[in-house]
Amino acid sequence: MPRLLRNLAMMIAVGTLWGLTPAMGKLALAEGMRPLGVASISAAVAASVLFGVAFVRGQAPPMDRAHIRQYVAGGVVGLAFAHLFAFTGLQRVPAGLFALMVPLSGLFTMLFFALAGIERATAVRLIGSAVGMAGVALAMAPGAALPDPALLPWAAIMLLTPVCYAASNLFSVKFAVRGTPPLAQASGTVIFAALGAAVIAWPLGHIGLPPRAGIALLLLGQGIATAVAYMLYFRLLVNAGGVFTSQAAYVITLAGLFWGFLLFDEVPGWLTIPAASLIFGGVALVTLAPRPAR
């Protein structure tokens, strides 16, 4: 298979899997499980799979102070807190709306990098951010992906998820330890994400066993899907670079809308198409714009 087609196949697989996992979490929440309980179990499964693969390949995650700081910053913020906000919102709002929010992580990442002095925010990127946020505002309007304006506070909570993703991207750059294999970084990050989710979940009373075997299997599948997506993501990052890999956000959105329709009969309003177009356009302006010279 030509390299481009192989990379495209991996990007589609990553987007499809990451677009599916919130819908799987929503199914578990509908059975009475709590947000961080779902996150803890699925992250523990993903961590076990990733660590097993990394260990077999001789790339077990290092556990010195510098690496642990990287794992904690990326895992607790980028997974534990991100899943807390995502699953809290998904108890009330459609999974399709969450799918529309995922690409915003690229916009917030650009803003955070600019504030941290890592990259300069050009006029094109600022315009892209404004266009993307306009798309989110439109997605929450009547006739789009939010069926009831009374659910707006829950959607606002869910909007914190891409903020967490962006903060995790910033921490990954600031605290990255050079020379560590991507698989080792991924497994270490997910291990500490699982630990962080459990630590936060315990005092909130979110820890609990799945109510029945079917939900346990669902969470097992969610964790395995997360692990596979992470492995493909880091492989794609090495093979195709960051700009190409970032385009998986579009696939995540389309897949999330599809899974919401298939699993929950969610039929977004007609405004969803222009809203998605604005979000996609904003992300494209931010991610595809030339990097400013420093």
Rank of each mutant, 00 (worst) to 15 (best):
A225K: 00
G106L: 14
L100K: 01
L262A: 15
E31Q: 14
I273M: 12
Y71R: 02
E119G: 05
L152D: 11
A141C: 06
A39E: 01
L204W: 13
M24P: 03
A82W: 07
R69Q: 11
A139S: 15
A176G: 13
I41Y: 04
L20P: 08
A293N: 09
V93Q: 02
L115P: 02
A249I: 09
V124K: 10
G78R: 03
R125W: 08
T88I: 07
F108H: 04
A66S: 14
Q91K: 12
G179Y: 07
F81M: 14
P153N: 12
G135Q: 03
G256Q: 09
M24V: 08
R92T: 13
I157N: 02
V45W: 01
L204F: 13
A276D: 02
Q185I: 04
L232F: 12
V14Y: 00
G260E: 09
L288I: 06
L84V: 01
F98I: 01
F280T: 04
A116I: 03
T253R: 01
D148I: 05
G241R: 05
G106M: 12
M140C: 15
L218E: 01
A289I: 03
P35Y: 03
F264H: 09
L218F: 05
A167T: 14
A284G: 05
G269C: 13
A194M: 08
L195A: 15
A13G: 05
A167R: 00
L126Q: 08
I68S: 05
H67Q: 13
R294Q: 13
G78P: 07
P62S: 10
V238S: 13
F175N: 11
R212Q: 13
L263C: 09
A139P: 10
A186S: 15
V53T: 09
R34S: 12
L138G: 00
Y230L: 14
P142Q: 10
G19E: 03
V76P: 04
A289H: 06
F258P: 04
R294L: 12
L27R: 07
V228M: 11
R235I: 03
S277L: 15
L17A: 11
Q59A: 12
I68E: 06
V124Y: 03
A13Q: 00
P182F: 05
G19V: 02
A80S: 15
L204N: 08
Y165F: 15
V53D: 08
P94W: 07
S172T: 10
A47E: 10
F55K: 14
A213I: 14
T189R: 08
L36M: 15
Q70G: 09
A255R: 00
S48G: 15
A134W: 06
L285Q: 04
